[in-house]
């Protein structure tokens, strides 16, 4: 028998946002990372769940490789990025012994893992946002998360794409998936949109440009903005391990921060009511 209400572990979370894209390598995890950092900078308390089981990138993005998940009285305790406890992460990457180990799982096992991630993680009681980072495609992980969130009333999904046709045609499939499972697209982010040459400041559209904007017009979805390729962001991720400063502090000075401020503001301006108000 199906229980027709949100899982207990998610009941107190005010907003749930998914990060989706049909295509791989377009920057779902970097958009998730930057969305999380931006939201924390705006004063929210954020949790991030990584359901990319065969290629979890978030532990590395947040500089948390080799951290472990502990079992608390209320369930698995997510990993906090620093002592301020404003940002916590849960990923399968934390549960592997060796970073090179592969997780060779067929569908049913992935489904069970996602169920556990949804039911057994003890997120903070006053969490404002839960971001869910997903793998590419429209398969087991996506069907499972849609089933788990069926009664949880998520805010919707941020769709990430890159500008070229090969990518947008996969993203169209993802938008049709959203329609089928009732995830509301909150908007489209066009990532890797141009590269500014550090030598001459000339912007080259390596993966062409405008594909995201076009897509948003075709599907009548808000366009949140385009993010250029910025090698300093990749570098920031890599240096955080050796740096004195925290990731939050480093990101505060990053070139992309003002851009993401704008993008996230466009989502916040949609004034989606808190789930807790709706439920109570």
């Amino acid at each position: 028998m199906d229980i027709e209400e949100a899982p207990e572990s998610l009941k107190h979370i005010k907003h749930i946002v998914l990060i989706l894209s049909g295509k791989g390598g377009v920057g779902k995890s970097s958009v998730t990372t930057q969305t999380a950092l931006t939201l924390v900078n705006k004063g929210f308390k954020v949790g991030v769940l990584d359901i990319d089981l065969t290629g979890p990138s978030l532990p590395r993005m947040f500089g948390l490789e080799n951290k472990q998940v502990f079992q608390g009285t209320n369930g698995w305790i997510p990993v906090y990025i620093d002592s301020s406890k404003k940002l916590s992460i849960m990923s399968l990457g934390f549960l592997l012994n060796d970073r090179g180990n592969s997780v060779v799982w067929r569908g049913p096992k992935k489904t069970a893992m996602i169920k556990q991630f949804i039911k057994d993680v003890a997120w903070d009681k006053d969490l404002d946002y839960l971001l869910i980072d997903t793998p590419p495609g429209t398969s087991d992980e996506h069907i499972s998360i849609a089933e788990e969130l069926k009664f949880a009333n998520p805010d919707g999904a941020i769709i990430v794409t890159t500008p070229q046709n090969v990518a947008t045609s996969d993203v169209k499939k993802e938008l049709n998936f959203c329609k089928k499972v009732n995830f509301k697209p909150l908007g489209i982010v066009e990532n890797m949109s141009g590269f500014i040459c550090p030598h001459c400041e000339e912007c080259t559209n390596i993966f062409s440009s405008g594909g995201g904007k076009l897509l948003s017009e075709q599907f009548n979805i808000p366009y949140l903005g385009n993010v250029p390729i910025d090698p300093t962001f990749v570098e920031l991720i890599e240096v955080q391990r050796t740096s004195e400063e925290t990731l939050l502090g480093l990101y505060d000075k990053a070139n992309l921060k003002p851009l993401f401020d704008e993008i996230i503001q466009k989502v916040l301006d949609q004034n989606i009511p808190s789930r807790t108000e709706l439920l109570n």
């Binding site: 590269f195 040459c197 030598h199 000339e202 080259t204 390596i206 090698p231 990749v234 890599e238």
Partner: peptide, 17 residues
């Protein structure tokens, strides 16, 4: 590696740290 079509300067977009 990426060679800028404008100035022919080379840059590492996805840096191999």
């Amino acid at each position: 590696g990426f060679v800028c079509p404008n100035c022919k300067g080379e840059s590492q977009i996805f840096r191999a740290t």
